[in-house]
Amino acid sequence: MATKVNNIRLTQTKQSFIDSFLRLVSLKDFEKITIVDITKGAKVNRATFYAHFNDKYELLDYIMGDSASAAIVKHTEGEIKFDQEGITQLVLSVFDFYQQPNIQCRSSYIGMVVPQLKEKIINELKVHLSNALGDIYPDHGKSFYVPIIAQMIHEGVYQWVTGNNTINQQEVAERISSLVLRGLQS
């Protein structure tokens, strides 16, 4: 029972750091956010912060990684079939990932955050695509196709998110999934 209580407390403490950091992100530049600022907002001491994270960069990394995983699980319930619907749901999860309010930030963060966002979501896509391609391709085939497919999905969404959107997300997701599936069938 003590382990469960301890895990809940750890989860609540991490969440308080995340909440504090996200409040600060909307108010000041990343470079000016200090551990003292984060711990003051979380109402927790600095030693506790360092028991969870090495620095604010690790906290940011944790937030983004958790968000990437959560976006995919939300759309796929953790299981992906390598078919039109499965790939469409993966694409929609990337849309959700980029549009989550908790990772939107001041323009001063864009240069630092966008590469990390891309890395996090592509890594999560690779994990889920590897599982989805499990029995379809041998390991050497998966190691070739998975990174390419992950990049295709990401790039298609990223182009929509950063450009002029003339078609809706569902249609983009269906087009990307068709492109992926047709490419593998040829």
Results as ranks from 00 to 15, higher is better:
Ala2Arg: 15
Thr3Asp: 14
Lys4Gly: 06
Asn7Ser: 14
Thr13Phe: 00
Thr13Glu: 07
Gln15Ala: 13
Ser16Phe: 04
Ser26Arg: 14
Lys28Phe: 10
Asp37Leu: 12
Ile38Val: 15
Gly41Met: 10
Ala42Met: 03
Asn45Met: 05
Thr48Ser: 15
Asp55Lys: 04
Lys56Tyr: 12
Tyr62Pro: 02
Ile72Leu: 10
Thr76Asp: 03
Phe82Asp: 01
Phe82Ala: 02
Thr88Gln: 08
Val91Cys: 06
Ser93Thr: 00
Asp96Ala: 08
Tyr98Gln: 03
Gln99Leu: 13
Gln104Asp: 00
Cys105Gln: 09
Arg106Glu: 04
Arg106His: 08
Val113Ala: 09
Leu117Glu: 09
Lys118Leu: 03
Glu119His: 07
Glu119Cys: 03
Ile121His: 01
His128Met: 12
His128Phe: 15
Ser130His: 06
Ile136Asp: 11
His140Thr: 13
His140Ile: 15
Gly141Gln: 00
Tyr145Leu: 15
Pro147Glu: 01
Ile148Lys: 08
Ile149Ala: 06
Met152Trp: 13
Gly163Thr: 13
Thr166Lys: 12
Thr166Trp: 11
Thr166His: 12
Ile167Tyr: 05
Glu171Asn: 04
Glu171Tyr: 06
Ala173Tyr: 04
Arg182Asn: 11
Gln185Trp: 02
Gln185Tyr: 03
Ser186Val: 11
Ser186His: 13
